[in-house]
């Protein structure tokens, strides 16, 4: 029980933690800065004599140049050229993410609560999960065409299994005592699902969502890469055709930033929905 007499004991360590957090951020930014400086120094044709490559321009050819990459990003946004592509990729990603999550949760709940069905489907689920699902892309192109739908389908197959396995596990790990208690309090099977199984599996769902955000992007970008006329993956593919490494790297940076943004949004939703979870450091609430 958080009691008021503990407040003073806690102030010391809490203040220290706050300080440490700031220092941590500084170090994190320093690592990034150091990386950019190194990258710049090692790829700039004029700064250093070529160490490994025969010609001064080759390092830049293989690794791109940070200034050029940032310039490319700036021009994309300044000219507005990127918005169309970014929009397509984000739509594909979000659709794959939501559809995959909904199916993963629904089928995960169903199989976890139906032991017979689960036993029947078990080997097939394992087989489909073991299959490298990116090879389904050509099939999806035939089924859904080269537009958004085929990329979404690819992303769904990636997201689905992550969410599915987590929900399945989450339902299996429901505390038997909590379950028995709810039954004694008169919960019907439907109410058990809604008030016990689903909330109990929620923490597992959120853990899986953090993983599947990245995979939704993988589905979208790989799909675009293999065949499309729009999207960030398409831009990267195009640039690669011209050996324009700066644009390739700029695309990667852009996708990383948006994946982080989506992950942050998931974290925010998690924080709001999972208030009941004990945190490692208990905060005083008054």
């Amino acid at each position: 029980m958080p009691s008021s007499k503990n407040t003073e004991d806690r102030k010391g360590p809490v203040a220290k933690v706050g300080n440490g957090k700031l220092r941590l951020r500084i170090y994190q930014v320093l690592v990034l800065a150091l990386f950019f400086v190194l990258w710049h120094v090692l790829t700039s044709p004029t700064l250093l004599p070529p160490i490994y490559f025969a010609e001064a321009n080759q390092a830049a050819f293989f690794f791109g140049e940070p200034i050029q990459v940032l310039g490319r990003l700036w021009r994309w946004f300044a000219s507005g050229e990127i918005y169309e592509h970014l929009w397509v990729t984000l739509v594909e990603t979000l659709l794959a993410f939501f559809i995959g999550t909904v199916f993963g949760v629904a089928i995960g709940l169903w199989l976890a609560l139906a032991p017979t069905a689960s036993a029947i489907f078990d080997p097939y689920i394992k087989a489909v999960n073991a299959m490298p699902r990116v090879i389904l892309a050509p099939i999806f192109f035939v089924w859904f065409g080269l537009d958004i739908a085929s990329k979404v389908a690819l992303g769904v197959t990636l997201v689905f299994f992550i969410v599915f396995f987590n929900v399945y596990q989450g339902v299996r790990e429901v505390s038997p005592v909590v379950l028995a208690n709810a039954r004694m309090l008169g919960a019907t099977p439907g109410q058990l699902l809604r008030y016990v199984y689903v909330p109990s599996a929620m923490s597992w769902v959120f853990a899986s969502l953090h993983n599947s955000v990245g995979l939704a992007f993988v589905g979208a970008v790989v799909g675009e890469y293999l065949g499309s006329a729009r999207g960030v993956g398409y831009l990267i593919h195009q640039a690669e055709g011209f050996f324009d490494m700066n644009t390739v790297v700029a695309g990667i940076v852009l996708l990383t930033a948006f994946a982080l943004l989506l992950d942050w949004a998931v974290g925010l939703a998690e924080k709001r929905l999972m208030v009941w979870q004990p945190r490692t450091v208990e905060t005083e609430r008054t």
Partner: peptide, 18 residues
């Protein structure tokens, strides 16, 4: 289930999300 009985468990049986 015995609907006329209430059960108090030995271990924690409260729903932690409520």
């Amino acid at each position: 289930i015995n609907s006329r009985a209430g059960y108090m468990f030995q271990s924690d049986a409260l729903m932690p999300w409520r």
